[in-house]
Amino acid sequence: MIVEAGVAIVQLMVVGLGAPLLLGMLRTVKARLVGRRGPRPWQPYADLWKLLGKEVVVSTTSSWVFRATPYVLVATVLVAALIVPVFVAHPPLAFAGNIILLVYLFMLATFFLALAGLDAGSAFGGMGASREVAVAALAEPTIIVAVFALALRADTIDLGRVVERFGHEPWLAANPAHLLAFAAFFIVMLAETGRLPVDNPATHLELTMIHEAMVLEYSGRYLALVEWAGAIKFFLFMTLLANLFFPWGLTSSVGPGAMLLALVALGGKLAVLTGAVAVLETSVAKLRLFRVPELLAGSFALAFLSLMAVILVQ
């Protein structure tokens, strides 16, 4: 019991403190790829700390939904952080749910963020909310079908056990169904975390924003919470990609040496994935908004093919 609580705290700290670093690393690598020196990888920590000390300006049009949303966002991603296998194969809250719970927890976050976008009564917020829920709704079938393909082969949908069973499989990465599911999940990750080619996180043009448009009204500590929750969501999606599809290095025991090794393995996998995302983001242009459903339909087709491959082989 005490051990589990300890693992939970360590996992929360790894995710909570590591998420801004991951985002910072992504920005640095992207900058280097276009010939700039770029910000330091720990810049997001400085941004968050500064925001905590700033005044909060709240719109007179908005209601308690606007003020509660940042805390709801943080709550959902922190609970999600305890369900995703980060460095321990059996995360603390694994008994509480599985991928379906994860998907719907993220939808809870999107629901409240969209409401907060509508709450301020500005056209930007409404537009961001409308686009964000459309992308989230269209991405959901892909996540569930892709993870179901994995669950079918592993004979369980509990994420910890899926990771454990695949960890013993040497030729996992060569399995075509596995790679198709990975490709589908990768595209969905880009859509859900608001990265190019679906959404440009650094854009200043409100008409091109999807996620950013909803947070235009937030300031001070609310903005800090929203940004932090966004970083954790990105971290969790990357961790899912790394650990579900390449489950090596996860430890089943809780000894400090094993956990440290697992953390190093996680760091390595995340570094490779971040590099891939950075290369992709600097190479492609943002898609027209009404082309995004086509991209998501394509990812669904990949996930469906992966599932069919598993079913036909069985």
């Binding site: 900058a31 276009v34 010939g35 700039r36 020196r37 770029g38 910000p39 330091r40 810049q43 400085a46 500064k50 700033k54 300006v57 854009t203 200043h204 043009l205 409100e206 924003m209 950013e212 235009l216 009204e217 937030y218 300031s219 903005l223």
Partner: peptide, 21 residues
């Protein structure tokens, strides 16, 4: 732009004045 790159000093431009210092 890459030549002057003010981002390396921790300065960045934002879209909304609510986010600005």
């Amino acid at each position: 732009a890459p030549h002057y790159d003010v981002e390396r000093f921790g300065v960045h431009f934002v879209a909304s004045p609510r986010h600005a210092d």
